[in-house]
Nucleic acid binder design. Structure first.
Lengths: 309, 309
DNA sequence: CTGAAAGCGCTTACAG
DNA sequence: CTGAAAGCGCTTACAG
């Protein structure tokens, strides 16, 4: 009788002292069996070695543990079979809910696994979505970062703005589209020559800037798809003797440690991972407490202005 | 009757088809209650946002999941109360074992919590130790990295070697001591002026190199306590117009992405996080399978030679 | 080879 | 206000 109202002070104390003496630890699994709730949440992520997922996973774990839930960590990679196996084992272990973070999870295969194994378990997804009644989506509108970046540059009188994109994912495409739309909104002519596609990363950033130079276009700013790529861009510029931000302004995406460490420190679009983790955790807790939440929530990034633009 | 030998092919097929049709998922918690094993391992770490812990946690999770175990992630920070709470909840949830990674866990408070809540659960610890019969230790001898670094520099004919240390932790102290011993072994006079203490990080590295300059000592190499600090050291050198490695060779510790990204790419002591994660996982699995393992295992780092030394 | 019973450690009604 | 019984969904002996 855990903290029930109708129990005498006397009896309670007597019982507690005995428990204390024998170092009694209640079995959560026996309890779970009857109350049909395990107080554990499955957290699926692409790869927690990546700072982005690590930050979100950390925040989720901290937030949930402060609410009495534990986290089972699942790194699926790009492996469908792994995802399926995790979904099954989370069902067997009867997690109360699952949080999936990453755009990788927007696939029909994922949908099938989740529908099959966890048809009634609340699922909160970040940056991906499934057509399932028990699924709730929370997304960060990364393309909004382009709006912020272009606005920032234009306010400084810079109009020759190049854009370095990486993969043709849904958000990747949305970002280029927004880049084009934003230029037009500011009355700046759009040129295909000002956007270069590359592999994200240091090398990719260097190559992208190199490509831009080889095209002979004139640019006063480069927006890079992420911060590490932006560091690569800056490295190429430095080797060409161009100063940042005087000659070329650089803006990156993702406010990881790399941004601060860059020289000059990078101005970046911050997708607010802590806020994301907290929002995801609160959503699942709300669902488990029977409170209703909107099926779709949008989070907006913000611009962190440092030395590079 | 899961795959028991004495069951007819016939019966088995009949049963399986019914299970399949009803989409039956066995309850792991009901099973756990009777078999006294949950197939879940608690992994305690300081903070999974740090690349070092993220890498190890990732590898542990992958390795254990391939052996049929799930991981409950616990980020304790420096908070004793949190650690105590996690220890208790892991006991309640009846994890089969726990892995603790980080030197933070070498405290009497930790020992008390673990003894109280998990007296019979196998505990495998990395870089920390407790005087408990159910505890097994696996440590990476970081000081060995100093041996490798000094050897490498001396082989290049460099003898004026400075050392930047951070905190006075057990391993921090062991590293300076080894630095001194190694110099002596190579017949190089040791000077207190050649070691500077700093706060780890970019800023700390810059400050440390600055301090070295202000002391007016002559140096041809600097060994930094970690890679980010080494990047700071290189940044200071670059600002002073010194070339790396021509004028000054730089070696860091921890082979994170920062090392590769540095310019020039950093020569570093790699503490082999993947190997560490695998070793920790195998140890706990061995213990759970009833195989005996040595109470203490030592792992050695290796030198990754890149452009800075 | 198969089926029914007991029990894992809890909670939840339900009698006393 | 307290105590004994039933049941959560499995596995493990043990009869048939």
């Amino acid at each position: 009788m855990n903290n029930h109202p109708n129990v005498t002070q006397n009896t309670r104390e007597r019982v507690l002292s005995v428990l204390e003496k024998h170092n009694y630890i209640p079995s959560a699994i026996a309890k779970s069996l009857v109350v049909k709730s395990t107080n554990t949440i499955g957290v699926m992520t692409l790869d927690v070695r990546h700072a982005h997922y690590a930050n979100i996973a950390f925040t989720i774990e901290q937030e949930l543990s402060s609410c009495g839930y534990n986290v089972i960590l699942c790194n699926t990679g790009y492996d469908r079979a792994k995802l399926d196996a995790y979904a099954r084992v989370l069902a067997e272990k009867q997690v109360d809910g699952v949080i999936m973070v990453g755009s990788v999870f927007s696939t029909l295969e994922t949908e099938e696994s989740m529908k099959r194994y966890l048809p009634h378990t609340p699922i909160v997804m970040h940056n991906s979505t499934l057509r399932l009644p028990n699924m709730y989506n929370i997304s960060t509108e990364e393309a909004h970062g382009i709006v912020l970046s272009v606005d920032h540059l234009v306010a400084k009188g810079i109009t020759e703005i190049a854009y370095v994109q990486d993969y043709d994912t849904r958000v990747g495409l949305a970002k280029v589209a927004t880049y084009r739309k934003e230029l037009e909104r500011h009355g700046i002519p759009y040129s295909r020559k000002m956007v270069v596609q590359t592999v994200s990363g240091l090398r990719g950033g260097m190559n992208a800037a190199e490509t831009l130079d080889s095209r002979g276009v004139s640019y006063r700013a480069i927006i890079g798809c992420d911060d590490v790529t932006a560091v690569g861009i800056m490295r190429h510029l430095a080797r060409r003797g161009k100063r940042v931000p005087e000659d070329v302004a650089v803006i990156g995406f993702n406010n990881t440690v790399f941004s601060e460490m860059a020289d000059p420190p990078l101005t970046v679009v911050d997708n607010k991972e802590e806020m994301t983790g907290i929002t995801l955790s609160r959503a699942i807790v709300d669902l488990l407490k029977g409170r209703d939440i909107p099926p779709q929530t949008t989070l907006y990034p913000e611009l962190v202005i440092r030395g590079s633009a």
